[in-house]
Design a protein around this nucleic acid. Structure first.
Length: 259
DNA sequence: ATGGCCCGTAGAACGGGA
């Protein structure tokens, strides 16, 4: 099973890129973030034509998540859950579904803006709620994958300039501690299961020619339970769509699991 | 050259992203 995550930064604008990329990579499951579309506007027909079923939870202008699955290989997503139970939130940042016996959790973790902002406090409260819910999900789903835009660079090696970013949002210690807590719950960072080149990032700022100069962060992740990690064959960032005209500022991350 | 963009909602700038 080939699973992937991609923050598309507007599915309306990026649909041609997504369709081209699906045709090239043929993933079985894709988690999308920042669709920025209400459900009525979701391009379900175009994706169905491409061979993908979809479940989605959208919000006007901001956020929005979706899980695509290749109908002919892994079938339809079931047991769909929107949001974190018990955590009231108008923003659409969480979508969970079961695909071919694997529990898929698609996350768009809040950005946090800056460490002295109210949005940062919301991010930390949100992460706390996530941990509590995941504890139960992990207890009932030994085959579980968490994919998404985490808006956290877990370690200095995930940052192009760790000194400049030290203590800043996306890199601050409380955020990194939350990431380590996820690992402590038994989840594994699929990317770090394998030897990787230095300076591997998944996001580059549109400003300052960030991509051309490779000034990036690795903030998009795939976390796997032990059972799935043991079957994971590879994990990589696909920089290709970031080179296309009018790209998302994020690149997809892909993992292959022998199941 | 230490700043540089992009998207949605607008129907001009502005909030938000990271």
């Amino acid at each position: 099973m080939k699973i992937a995550t991609w923050n598309v930064n507007s599915l309306k604008v990026r649909l041609p890129h997504l369709l081209d990329w699906l045709a090239a990579e043929q993933p079985d499951v894709v988690c999308l973030q920042e669709t920025k579309l209400v459900d009525e506007a979701f391009p379900a027909a175009a994706l169905a034509d491409a061979g993908y079923g979809a479940v989605y939870a959208g919000q006007k202008t901001y956020t929005g998540v979706a899980i695509l699955s290749r109908s002919d290989r892994v079938g339809v997503a079931g047991e769909v859950q929107v949001g974190i139970p018990g955590f009231a939130d108008e923003q659409k940042r969480v979508l969970a579904a079961t695909v071919a016996g694997v529990r898929i959790i698609c996350l768009y973790i809040p950005n946090g803006q800056s460490v002295d902002s109210e949005k940062y406090q919301y991010k930390l409260a949100w992460l706390h709620a996530l941990q509590g819910w995941l504890r139960g999900e992990l207890a009932t789903h030994p085959r579980l994958a968490v994919l998404g835009d985490f808006n956290i660079a877990p370690e200095d090696r995930d940052v192009h300039d760790p000194v400049a970013w030290a203590g800043q949002v996306l890199c601050s210690e409380p955020e990194r501690e939350q990431f380590r807590t996820l690992l402590g719950q038994g989840l594994v960072d699929a990317f770090r299961l394998f030897e990787q080149p230095e300076r591997c990032f998944s996001w580059w700022d549109y400003r300052a020619a960030g991509f051309r100069r490779d000034l990036g962060l690795r903030i998009d992740h795939i976390l796997l339970t032990g059972e799935l990690a043991a079957a994971c064959k590879n994990c990589r960032v696909d920089r290709t769509p970031r080179t296309w005209e009018r790209p998302s500022d994020h690149a997809p991350v892909i993992a292959e699991i022998a199941c």
